[in-house]
Design a binder for these strands. Structure first.
Lengths: 342, 342
DNA sequence: CTGTTAGCGCTTTCAG
DNA sequence: CTGAAAGCGCTAACAG
C-alpha cells in the first residue's frame, strides 16, 4: 500500500543491469538468454515489481490493447437490449482470445476524442445516435469496423436486411391482406406514431429503411398495398414504445391481418397483447419479428422471424478489426418459421 | 489521414507561443486571458489540432477517466444476465455524468495487471470467479469498490441478503411444508446437483450462503426442516442449469410444496416448467425468486420475489468510487408479493 | 500572464 | 548479448 511504486529504472539499478535488459526480459524474450531472463523475472517478483507500467507503454508503443465498442445509443440502453448484448458477447469473447480489453462507448457521446488517442481501434455497432461521431470515425487514423451500417472505405459486417425483410414478408403475406408495419426510427419523432407523410430519416443508411424496402417489395410481389397510415414509427426497440404501438395496431379498425415488426421485442409485445385481448394468433392476426432473440423461441406460439447471429457478428467484427483485412462482410440470415404465421 | 499528427509542441511553435500556454488553454482556463484562450482554441481548430494527446496525459497526470468494471465472470456471461446488465446500466449512467469511461473486465481474467496502471479505479461486481483477483485488488493502490461482496477496508455496496432471504421465505413457508431450495454456487461442482454432504464453498463470503442462512432461519422459525437432499446447487444462474434443476425438483417424489429460488431466472424457469407439466402454481407448488427482474413482473402468475434495485446499486457504486467516501453502503430491498405464493 | 525545463516510465535504436 | 541515450507528448513547478 504505502510501498512506493517501483519503476523499471529502480529495478535495473537494484539488480545491477541496464533498463533495456529488464525491458527485454518482459517484452522480448529473444533478446536475452533464457537463464538470465528467468533469473530477472524471479528477482522482480521477489522485490514486488510486476512489470512495466502500462500507461507508459501505451504512450511509448502507441498501442494499448483496448478496443472501443461504440454503441448506437447510450450504454444504459444498449446493454439491456438482447440483440445488442448478444453482440457484445461475441465481441468480448473474440477480444478476450486476443488479450484485448473492451471499452464501452456510448453513441450519444459528443466526441470520440476522449479515447481516440489511446484505444487501438473502434467497433461501431449501428449508426451512432450522434451522427457527428461517424464523421470523426471516418477521419480517424485508428482502425474502424462498422456493423449494421457503413462508413465509406471502412470494413464492415452486415446482413442483407432488404432481402431478409423481403423473405419474411413474402412468407407471411397473402393477396388481400390488410398489413401493418411496426418500424424503427423511420421518421424524426420521439414518440410512437404512424409515419403518414412525414419526412423519412436516414433513408440511405439505416437498416430500418432497408427492411422497409424489403417489406414493400414483398407486398408489391403479392399485390398487397401498404399505405403510410399502416406504417408505424417507434423511436426505440423498447417495450414501452412497443406496447403503445401494439395497442394502436390492435385497436385500429379494420384490424390488420398481418403485422411485420422490425424487431422481436416489438413483435413479442404485440403477440402478448393480442393474446391478452383474446385475439387469436395466427388465425386472426399473423406476426413476424426480426432478429431471432431467445425469447422469441420461448414464446408460445413461437415467433416467425428473421434469425441473425449477433454473436457471430460480434466475433467477425472483432476479428476484422484485429486482422485488418478491410473486408465488407455480409453474414447469412435465416427465416425461422414459428407459429405466428401459417 | 496522411496528415502527420500534430503535437502540442508543433502547435506552440506554429502559433508562436509556449507549450505551457497551449496546454493551459486546454486544461486550465484560469491561467490565461479568456481572449487569448479563445484565440488559441480557434487557431487549433483551424490547423486541425484537437487537443492534447490522451495517452500522454494519462502517463503524465496519472489519471485516465477510465473505470474498470470487474465482473464476477466472463463478460459474455455477465452481459446477458438481466441482473448484471441492469447493474452495468446504473454504473454507466453514473459514470457518464462524471465524464468517465467504462472498461469491462472479466472476473475470470488471470490478473488485473493489464489495466491497473492506467485505470482510475475498480468497481467489482460480485466475487470474481478467479479468486486471485481479490488479492490483487486488495493490494492495489487504486480505489476499489466492491458490490455484493466485501474486501476488507474497501468501500462496498450490498443488501442484507440474509434478512431478505429470511423475509421472503417467512412469507412463503408454512408448518408442514415440504421445501426445496434452488441455490447458486453452493458447492464446487460444474453441474446441477443436490448438495448432500459436499463441502460448501465460500461459506463466509458468498451471497448465496447468506441467502441460504436466511432461508434456513425462516424454516427454523416455522418449524420446517430442510435436509441437504432438498437443496440444489446450480453452477450459474443460467436457463439451461435452471431447467435441469426445475425438472429434478418437479419430478421428485414427494414433490415439494414450496421452492425457494436464489434468482428470478431460476424461479421463472421452474414456474414455466411447472405450468407446462400442468402443475398449478401456487395451489400445488409455491415459488419464490430473488432479484426482482422485469421478466418476473411480466410472468403470469407474477413471481413473488425479493426486489433489489440493481440500477441503484450501480449508481451508488460508481459514485462511491468517484467520491471516495469509504462507506459500506447497505441498500434496502423489498419483498414483492406476486401470485406464486398465497 | 508567459516561457523554460524537468520529468511521468518506458522502448528501442545503436554502439560495444 | 548488454548498456547508454533519445525521445513518446504532455504537465506543472518555477522563474520571469
Amino acid at each position: 500500500m504505502t510501498k512506493a511504486k517501483l519503476t523499471l529504472k529502480d529495478v535495473a539499478e537494484q539488480l545491477g543491469v541496464s533498463t533495456a535488459t529488464i525491458s527485454n526480459a518482459f517484452n522480448r524474450p529473444d533478446q536475452l538468454s533464457q537463464r538470465k531472463r528467468e533469473e530477472i523475472l524471479a528477482q522482480c517478483k521477489k522485490i514486488g515489481y510486476s512489470g512495466p507500467n502500462k500507461a507508459a507503454q501505451i504512450l511509448r508503443k502507441g498501442t494499448s490493447n483496448i478496443v472501443a465498442l461504440v454503441l448506437a445509443d447510450s450504454i444504459s440502453y444498449m446493454v439491456s437490449d438482447p440483440v445488442a448484448s448478444t453482440f457484445i458477447k461475441g465481441v468480448s469473447s473474440a477480444l478476450k482470445k486476443q488479450g484485448k480489453h473492451l471499452l464501452l462507448y456510448a453513441g450519444d457521446s459528443s466526441s470520440i476524442l476522449d479515447v481516440v488517442d489511446f484505444v487501438d481501434g473502434f467497433i461501431c455497432y449501428g449508426a451512432p445516435r450522434n451522427a457527428a461521431l461517424v464523421g470523426e470515425l471516418a477521419l480517424s487514423s485508428k482502425p474502424v469496423v462498422t456493423v449494421d451500417f457503413d462508413i465509406e472505405n471502412k470494413p464492415s459486417v452486415n446482413i442483407d436486411n432488404e432481402e431478409a425483410a423481403f423473405e419474411v414478408a413474402s412468407y407471411a403475406l397473402n393477396e388481400g391482406d390488410n398489413v401493418a408495419i411496426l418500424g424503427l426510427r423511420l421518421i424524426n419523432s420521439p414518440s410512437t406514431c404512424r409515419i403518414y407523410d412525414n419526412p423519412l430519416i436516414d433513408v440511405e443508411s439505416s437498416i430500418s429503411h432497408r427492411r422497409l424496402d424489403g417489406y414493400l417489395r414483398a407486398a408489391e410481389h403479392k399485390d398487397v398495398t401498404i399505405s403510410n397510415e399502416q406504417i408505424w414509427h417507434l423511436p426505440e426497440s423498447e417495450r414501452s414504445f412497443a406496447k403503445q404501438a401494439a395497442r394502436e395496431v390492435l385497436t385500429s379498425s379494420p384490424r390488420p391481418d398481418v403485422v411485420l415488426c422490425m424487431s422481436d421485442i416489438i413483435a413479442l409485445e404485440l403477440l402478448h397483447m393480442a393474446l391478452e385481448l383474446g385475439i387469436k394468433v395466427p388465425e386472426e392476426i399473423k406476426i413476424t419479428g426480426f432478429d431471432g432473440i431467445e425469447e422469441a423461441e420461448r414464446a408460445r406460439p413461437r415467433l416467425t422471424t428473421v434469425c441473425q447471429s449477433s454473436t457471430e457478428k460480434g466475433i467477425r467484427a472483432a476479428n476484422e478489426l484485429i486482422e485488418q483485412l478491410g473486408e465488407n462482410i455480409v453474414l447469412p440470415f435465416e427465416i425461422r418459421k414459428g407459429e405466428t404465421v401459417y
